[in-house]
Design a protein around this nucleic acid. Structure first.
Lengths: 262, 262
DNA sequence: CGGGACATTGATTAAGATCAATTTAAGTGG
DNA sequence: CCACTTAAATTGATCTTAATCAATGTCCCG
């Protein structure tokens, strides 16, 4: 494979390797933010401010990081909102559990996603944020974020937009659930993942789904068997090649036609 | 019927009558906000500030109102975000239309709802806000809202929370769509409406659904016939009495059991 | 090499969509 | 005020899709 894209594994290694050393009890070393430097940070002004915070132990310009191991929760529903987090490397799932114990996967944050906004309405988180793989987040103390919003108009707007962005994610997902067949949902899901992979500098053609079929099913409001069969049908139609978690898009056009809003 | 609740019709008359005079081309007279006085305003600080705005023609403390006739749009998808609106009387539907023309009803704002937040992410509205009946909104120029957020920490927080509240509405709806049968969805919908009616001072037992079956169907991701049949089944089970738009809850307990998160 | 989580596949059932026909209510204009 | 028109809602018959139930297969990790 001679693409310009890095494989998921290699990219993680070279970019973030030093910070994903488990299980190291010592905090990661201070660094400047590569994500901000690359313009990939959705809230650069918030972040910049947070880095200036009195509370955090690193010198100005350093970043307060936290590592989360695969399967571990960054925060849980009910936890008081203390920090927002910028996902720096890895991927997670946001899980809602209702009073009856039914689980719903609200989203699959990946590098660049802002996490923790589900705590803003009530001051307590509404979801569990669980790592799908060993991950690294950039910690933005919420008090700093607020202080920053107070002094910096642009930062305040960024925060508003970030919250509103979540809303629009759910709106989109709602359309998918309300109007699409299981096969179309899966096609749409793959398309969305593909676009997000591209945004993050990976190949949009070929990538690894970090979540289980169960997670996908709970995300899209279907059963695991249906997910499996839908993938099977896409495979038979030579639209994708899927083997376990590894996915390759063979016919982007057909996929797009099938997965685009009905 | 000797309840302490007002019928929808009478309440509209006595509380808001003077302001719903259609089709009056002259702006409604300045008044102080009864909603704020009653503590029913979700963004009192934002509103208070907006009322102080230089731009609006009324003396300090007055409210800038706008009437919207049944079927008319307060704003449309694509319109630039100019104002937020507090719904003062009446009810609306927020309609999303995707590129293929499929419609989805995102929510049914009623008195007390804050409208227009769907414009914050991009600066342009993502939905149409259409009046289900002749309605009255309180206009909050967005520039004023922002100015207010800048100077008033509490107001800024209210804005953030208001946006986040939308998110949580969609999250809830997502759970409903992903996990509930058509009958459970309808039960849940009626319950939600009932609670909202109670919040607004109407009877939670008996009220009028201002939206069509089609609207309900598009809100809950089902077909109109299925809505009708689900209502029919609830009727047969003596859980509700439904005749056209008029709805009466006969067995709140059973309804709650059926409509509460599965 | 074996255990366990994850995934696939098949057979059957059930729920909701679809197609088609009425019924009901609310306006509208003579 | 009443016949006429039309939008909204209901009801029935049939078909399709996805859920359910039940095995079986596969890969990863110790």
């Amino acid at each position: 494979m001679d693409t310009a894209y890095l494989s998921a594994e290699r990219r993680d290694m070279q970019d973030y390797g030093p910070f994903i050393r488990f299980p190291s009890p010592s905090p990661p070393a201070p660094v400047t933010c590569k994500m901000a430097a690359a313009g990939a940070c959705s809230v650069p002004d918030l972040c910049r401010h947070a880095r200036r915070s009195e509370q955090q132990p690193f010198p100005t310009g350093a970043i307060n990081r936290r590592a989360v191991r695969r399967g571990q929760a960054l925060y849980r529903a009910g936890d008081p909102l203390v920090n927002l987090y910028q996902l720096y490397a890895g991927s997670m799932k946001l899980r809602i559990t209702n009073s009856a114990g039914t689980e719903q996967i609200a989203s699959f944050p990946m590098a660049g996603s802002l996490l923790g906004l589900d705590g803003i309405e009530t001051g307590h988180h509404m979801c569990d944020a669980v790592a799908l793989e060993d991950s690294l987040v950039c910690v933005l103390p919420f008090s700093d974020v607020l202080a920053c919003s107070r002094t910096d108009t642009e930062a305040a707007l960024q925060l508003n937009r970030a919250i509103a962005h979540e809303t629009s994610h759910y709106r989109r997902l709602l359309m998918v659930m309300a109007n699409m067949s299981s096969e179309e949902r899966i096609a749409n899901f793959i398309l969305t993942m593909s676009e997000r992979m591209a945004t993050n500098g990976y190949s949009p053609q070929e990538f690894v789904l970090k979540m289980t079929r169960e997670d996908i099913a709970r995300h899209l409001g279907m059963k695991i068997e249906t997910v499996s069969r839908a993938l099977g049908r896409l495979q038979s139609a030579h639209i994708v090649d899927v083997s376990r978690r590894r996915l390759c898009i063979r016919d982007p056009k057909a996929l797009s036609q099938m997965g685009s809003s009905r």
